[in-house]
Amino acid sequence: MSASAVFVLDLKGKVLICRNYKGDVDMSEIDHFFTLLMQQEEEGLVCPVMSHGNVHFLWIKHSNLYLVATTNKNSNASLVYAFLYKLVEVFTEYFKELEEESIQDNFVLCRMRVGPANVCVCLCACARVCVHACVCAGDKGKSVAMEDVKFHQCVRLSRFESDRTISFIPPDGESELMSYRINTHVKPLIWIESVIEKFSHSRVEIMVKAKGQFKKQSVANNVEIYVPVPSDADSPKFKTSTGHAKYVPEKNLVVWSIKSFPGGKEFLMRAHFSLPSVENHELEGRPPITVKFEIPYYTVSGIQVRYMKIIEKSGYQALPWVRYITQSGDYQLRTNS
Rank of each mutant, 00 (worst) to 15 (best):
C126K: 14
C134A: 14
E89I: 00
P262Y: 04
T299L: 02
G53Y: 09
A133F: 03
P116K: 10
G243Q: 02
E193W: 07
C134R: 15
H244V: 07
F238T: 13
R164F: 14
T70C: 09
V49H: 03
G264A: 02
D234P: 03
V208P: 07
E100K: 14
I311P: 01
C130F: 10
C154P: 02
V15T: 11
V135Q: 04
T242R: 07
E312I: 03
K251A: 14
C110D: 14
S260P: 04
P288C: 04
E93T: 10
N72C: 10
E97S: 06
P262D: 05
I192H: 04
C18P: 00
T70K: 01
M27V: 13
G115Y: 04
L189A: 09
S2L: 11
L9R: 04
V46I: 12
F214E: 08
N252G: 15
M269N: 09
N76L: 06
A271R: 08
F33P: 00
L98Y: 03
W59E: 02
L275G: 05
D163P: 01
V8K: 02
Y247P: 00
F160P: 01
F160V: 02
C154F: 05
V119L: 14
L11K: 10
V227W: 01
V119G: 06
H52E: 14
E266N: 05
L37S: 00
E224V: 09
I258Y: 12
D148F: 13
V119S: 07
E250R: 05
T326L: 05
V223N: 08
V149Q: 12
N74E: 15
H272M: 11
P288Q: 08
K61W: 08
P296D: 08
L11N: 15
I192G: 11
L84M: 09
P48N: 07
D330E: 12
F151V: 06
F151L: 02
W256C: 02
W321R: 14
A117D: 10
M1D: 06
A137D: 08
V114F: 07
R323Q: 11
W191K: 13
A133K: 01
T242E: 04
G243K: 02
G138C: 01
V227E: 03
A77F: 12
V144E: 00
H56F: 10
I192F: 02
Q217K: 14
T165V: 15
I225P: 00
T71H: 08
H52T: 06
V15M: 05
L87G: 04
L333C: 13
L9V: 12
V248M: 08
F199L: 05
V15A: 15
F95T: 09
P320T: 02
R164M: 11
G212F: 05
V129D: 03
C136F: 14
V108C: 15
H272L: 13
V223D: 01
L268G: 00
I30L: 00
Q327I: 15
I196E: 12
K150C: 14
F199C: 10
N106E: 12
C47W: 11
P236W: 03
V227A: 06
C130Q: 11
Q153K: 12
L36C: 09
H281N: 10
K265L: 08
R334N: 15
C130T: 15
R203G: 06
G13L: 00
V25I: 08
